[in-house]
Nucleic acid binder design. Sequence first.
DNA 1: GTCTATAATATGATAGAC
DNA 2: GTCTATCATATTATAGAC
Lengths: 218, 218
Amino acid sequence: MAKKQASQTRTTARASVSADDLAPAEGRQLILDTAARLFREEGYANTSLRDIAAECGVTTGSIYHHFGSKEEIVTEVLRIGVVRVAEEVRRAVMSLDPASEARTILHAAVYAHLHALLELQDYTSANVRIFGQVPPSIREKHIVVRDAYETYWHKLLQRCALQGTFNPARDLRLTRLFLINALNGSLEWYRPEIASIQKLAHELTELFLDGLDANPRR
Amino acid sequence: MAKKQASQTRTTARASVSADDLAPAEGRQLILDTAARLFREEGYANTSLRDIAAECGVTTGSIYHHFGSKEEIVTEVLRIGVVRVAEEVRRAVMSLDPASEARTILHAAVYAHLHALLELQDYTSANVRIFGQVPPSIREKHIVVRDAYETYWHKLLQRCALQGTFNPARDLRLTRLFLINALNGSLEWYRPEIASIQKLAHELTELFLDGLDANPRR
DNA sequence: GTCTATAATATGATAGAC
DNA sequence: GTCTATCATATTATAGAC
């Protein structure tokens, strides 16, 4: 398998994967966007290269000019799904006053995660849905990317806990797992009519910090 | 190229979906159990009837004696995945003292859900993973089964709220969605070494009722 | 109830013209 | 960079013997 170069985001192909460009995607980027959408909708094994090609208005032969194999496409789709979310969360947290209290930090991270997750729907939703369908070799490589992001969240919670306001009985590891599951699950039911992303972030932050029971102190 | 490792793991000892019988499953039941496991591990489209047949020690011809099509198999796997969990939760809640306080009710429901979910791993995990991969006609029929269970949870939370101890600012609809996502997400990371099901249920109940922040009243 | 064949189709990937 | 073939396999499902 000849891999010419590690996947470099081209400056020319600014992608519908980033929400800010208005020009329709082309070539490699169009193939990626289309693949992400079809993987999400139909699953990995059930999406053929012919399907992707047809949706792009090209033939399967052309796809092999841009990618070496179907596996190469799905690898890139999976990577983008996690890395873009992680980047946005890191950026949001870094832009905060370092002395911010736990509630502020958590809310910023939760909002940034939800925003990127639901903005990149095709990539992130594909990620959640097809992870269990790709060949084990791809799965193993991708798990590294996932773990790095989980570790980031773990450190974030530990940093918040250092402020001393958390109930020491809480298990931060389980809390992190429950929180990330609650965040990512929104992919399956989120619609703007139900509630805005702001509302989601607010509600989830309050729920995880204060709980369902009333607390007269606040 | 999709090369499949002929997994030689003999799993005849694995518990079938009817947990009470100790004899290894046979015929129709063996096919269902095997299909559920393979669907979960490899995805729906990537699991062929040959794979299922081979793992059962029969041929594809035999499968068509028990089921009319591959879709008929997956329909039943999906149904079992939700219905069994729902049944166990209903039973647990019904066996409680009707005057039980919210914390008791919630804990019982959370524990029952986790217990059934992780006990029936092949069926419930297949359910979560392959839902997005089956033909739309099957998906639509199955969504009815899912919605019924979601409605049950909604009523459960409303019943708890009637006791008047909940913070009225909380959104019960979003809370339910976050809770079910947190519960089902455990399928992807649960291992007994991390924490017992009891521990999971306890931690999740406390987290959703009391939150992460310390509360001096308790 | 299980088997052996086999039909009809779809798939990932390649070669080579333009 | 895209096209038109085409190869070698794998797929669901069926027919009919035992």
